[in-house]
Amino acid sequence: MEILVCVKRVPDSAENEIEMNSEGNDIERDDLVYSVNEWDNYAVEEAIQIVDKVGGTVTVVTVGDEDCDEILRREMAMGAEKGLLLNDDAFAGSDCKGIATILKGAVQKGNYDLVLTGAQADEGAGAVGGMLAAMLDLPYASLVNKIELGEGKLTIGREIEGGNREMNEITLPCVLSIQTGINEPRYVGIRGIRKVSGVEIPELSAADMGIDAASVGEAGAGVKKVDYFVPEKGEGAEMLEGSTDEIIAKLIEILKANGGL
């Protein structure tokens, strides 16, 4: 099975304290440590496991500049056979539709049976997978937390609100967005790192994929961010501070005072 997994380089929330920049229109990006988006890691692991069972190839793709090389190599060191960087100045500032348009170009350059994305990334919209499927006119399922292989189709489990779960059949080729917990992503090994450290990762530009530069990037973005802020604490909300024991003690006091205990 030929599988394409769409991955994204995002600020690593475990490594950084995310703060607002001085202009108040974005997070402070100087000196941030970046990693691969956590959900994407589960998608790559799932793809590797599928290929281990039935054969085929896993390709990881991302939209970004040369800084994204590190996350592609990381996922290749994990076990993806190929990497693909979609890099063009025209891609900068793309909204979700723009990113989906770019990824569509990459999908059409290959011959993939299955396209995976993470359920969401750092911006939390979770929109790219669905848009990509619509643009490709492929069936789509979101928040997938189980995949069983079938002939020309997959049986997939989906997480439903309230902790429920449903099973669906979906025909191949298709697009799936993968939820965390579907597997336990393996750690990258040193042998894998050494294997991929000298591998050339091909790049595709807008022209290579026949994409109209005006349809992507800032120029093509129908959604523009106009503000970015930490909401003010609302009435009645109290943030408890201190050590875990102090917080627990305060919480018990509050619950007792309000008849909760």
């Binding site: 475990a14 990693s35 590190e70 190599r73 990381r74 060191a77 750690y187 990258v188 090994g189 040193i190 790192i193 050494r194 450290s197």
Partner: peptide
């Protein structure tokens, strides 16, 4: 080297997780 930075990062990820 980039290779050693990747090794450092993977050891860091494992150690912290």
């Amino acid at each position: 080297s980039k290779e050693n930075l990747m090794i450092q990062k993977t050891a860091r990820e494992f150690a912290r997780k």
